[in-house]
Design a protein around this nucleic acid. Structure first.
Lengths: 197, 197
DNA sequence: CCACAATGTTGTCAAGGACAACTTCCTGCG
DNA sequence: CGCAGGAAGTTGTCCTTGACAACATTGTGG
């Protein structure tokens, strides 16, 4: 039962977890590799084996963020029955839940995604948004949404959802108002879609 | 004609301008007080007279960002004639123009706004959004938007606009697609509103 | 069982933020 | 005037951090 084995076992994961926590609580700007190393009980040079530099850590953080978001969206879709509207609502709510629980992480995910050489990240992001697109396609198939390129319809929807999240994390809307705003927005969106369909 | 007068004249403004430039080109994370001082031709201790610490500089940047955004929105509204729809379109476009020309600044503005002790910032933000609310109120008065609390209607609208901006700066939408997406979204929004009005 | 790769550690450098002591300039007031 | 006091800048220092290199430890496949 070594008090501190030379090899940590899974330092990479431990660093990412600690980093995610710091980002959530104090923002990306406060993230320090050395402090992370201290938190995890390892020397200041150790993280370098897993993340060549700070940016690499941030990239990995974004990557794991997309993966987590994807599984949460997946769970929301799958847990909301087969009907379109409940699914749409559940998916939007799940996205917003993630966005408000971890605003700095989401921001990081977007910031980092469209840097060049972020192929892996782009893929992870695509896989994530594919979950939302499924719902859009279903909506079109069932005639709740206007037909045509799902991308185009999806963007309008996604803009709305992302915007709601931004209002929340920007403090322009109190969490208590969320349900109302989300329902308003979805109803609004569907009215706009049906009129065109 | 002093080559370098001891007193700069308007160091505060100069620092803010240089900072805004750096933020635009390299992001908030890259902003260094010392580098700023060098850029402006002043010693590393000088900025402290105007900004006690880095955060104070960021706060001031956000503040001046809100002021600039407000004048741009104002100009858009005033320059778009009296009819509601063109006004709405012009306002949204102006917001999005700002958001995409200076994504990091906008992000900073929102991040910093809902920190405690940001009363001044909150006010500046309110003044900015008041411009958009004017347009909403007009839309309601003329029957283009559903009646009721303008805040509530405005939020749905603003969420959409902010969301479009997020999609652009997140690289999910190419600038060429902007016009189409914006028109789609506004049309969509108005259809949803009229159906309820 | 041992060479080699993977993982950690220690030491160092340069850069930046915060702070204090000191200097230069300007302004108002006698 | 002229000079006291404050505003604006400068210099020097401390501490933290990111990046890097040289070295130490461990675990593993031949």
């Amino acid at each position: 039962m070594p008090e501190r084995p030379y090899h940590h076992g899974n330092l990479r994961r431990a660093l990412l977890d600690a980093a995610e926590r710091t980002v959530r609580e104090r923002g990306v700007g406060e993230l320090s590799l050395r402090e992370l190393a201290r938190d995890v009980g390892v020397s200041h040079g150790a993280p370098r084996r897993h993340f060549p530099d700070r940016q690499a850590l941030l990239d990995a953080l974004a990557q794991s963020g997309f993966e987590r978001l994807r599984t949460e969206l997946r769970a929301a879709v799958d847990g909301a029955g087969d009907a379109f509207e409940p699914r749409l609502h559940a998916t939007a709510a799940a996205y917003i839940r993630f966005a408000t629980a971890d605003p700095a992480l989401l921001e990081l995910m977007f910031t980092v995604k469209h840097r060049e050489g972020a192929g892996d990240l782009q893929e992870a992001a695509d896989r994530t948004f594919a979950v939302m697109m499924e719902v859009v396609v279903q909506g079109q198939a069932e005639g709740h949404l206007e037909p045509g390129d799902p991308e185009r319809v999806g963007l309008v929807l996604f803009a709305t959802i992302q915007g709601i999240a931004a209002l929340l994390t920007g403090g322009m809307v109190a969490p208590e108002q969320l349900d109302e705003l989300l329902s308003d927005s979805i109803a609004h969106f569907l009215r706009g879609s049906r009129a065109a369909a």
